[in-house]
Amino acid sequence: MDTTPTDVPVQWLTPEEQAAWRGFLELSRGMERAVDRQLQRDSELSSSEYEVLVPLSEGPSEGMASRELLTLLGWERSRLSHMLSRMERREMITRSPNPSDARGLMVGITGRGREAIENAAPGHLHLVRETFIDVLDEEEQATLVGIAHKVLPRLVALGLR
Rank of each mutant, 00 (worst) to 15 (best):
M1D: 07
D2C: 11
T3Y: 09
T4F: 12
T4E: 14
P5Q: 14
T6E: 06
T6D: 08
D7K: 13
V8L: 15
P9H: 07
P9T: 06
V10Q: 13
V10D: 15
Q11L: 10
L13S: 06
T14R: 06
P15R: 14
E16I: 06
E16Y: 10
Q18S: 09
Q18L: 09
A19M: 11
W21P: 01
F24W: 10
F24Y: 12
L25R: 11
L25V: 09
E26S: 14
L27D: 00
R29F: 09
G30P: 01
M31Y: 09
R33M: 12
V35P: 00
V35D: 00
R37C: 01
R37L: 01
R37T: 01
Q38V: 12
Q38Y: 10
Q38N: 13
Q40K: 11
R41V: 10
S43M: 02
S43C: 02
E44V: 00
L45V: 11
L45T: 09
S46M: 05
S47H: 08
S47N: 08
E49K: 08
Y50K: 09
Y50P: 06
V52F: 03
V54E: 06
V54G: 06
L56V: 03
L56M: 03
S57K: 02
S57M: 04
S57C: 05
E58Q: 14
S61L: 10
E62I: 13
E62R: 15
E62Y: 13
G63K: 11
G63V: 08
G63M: 08
G63P: 12
M64D: 07
A65L: 05
S66I: 04
S66T: 03
S66M: 00
R67C: 00
R67F: 02
E68L: 00
L69C: 05
T71L: 13
T71D: 10
T71G: 11
L72E: 12
L72W: 12
L73P: 00
G74V: 09
H82R: 15
H82T: 15
M83S: 12
L84G: 01
S85G: 08
R86C: 10
M87V: 07
E88Q: 10
R89E: 15
R90C: 10
R90I: 04
R90T: 08
R90A: 14
R90S: 14
E91Q: 11
I93G: 01
T94R: 14
T94W: 02
R95F: 05
P97K: 05
S100H: 15
S100G: 10
R103H: 08
G104D: 01
L105A: 15
M106D: 01
M106F: 02
I109P: 03
I109T: 03
I109H: 02
R112E: 11
G113C: 04
E115R: 15
E115A: 13
A116T: 05
A116I: 07
I117H: 05
I117F: 04
N119Q: 13
N119E: 02
A120T: 05
A120G: 03
P122F: 04
H124M: 07
L125M: 08
L125R: 05
L127K: 02
V128Q: 12
V128N: 06
V128E: 04
E130I: 00
E130L: 07
T131I: 08
F132L: 14
L136G: 03
E138L: 15
E139C: 04
Q141T: 07
T143Y: 09
V145A: 01
G146F: 01
A148F: 04
A148P: 01
H149P: 00
V151S: 08
L152Y: 08
P153E: 08
R154T: 13
V156E: 13
A157C: 11
L158C: 04
R161W: 15
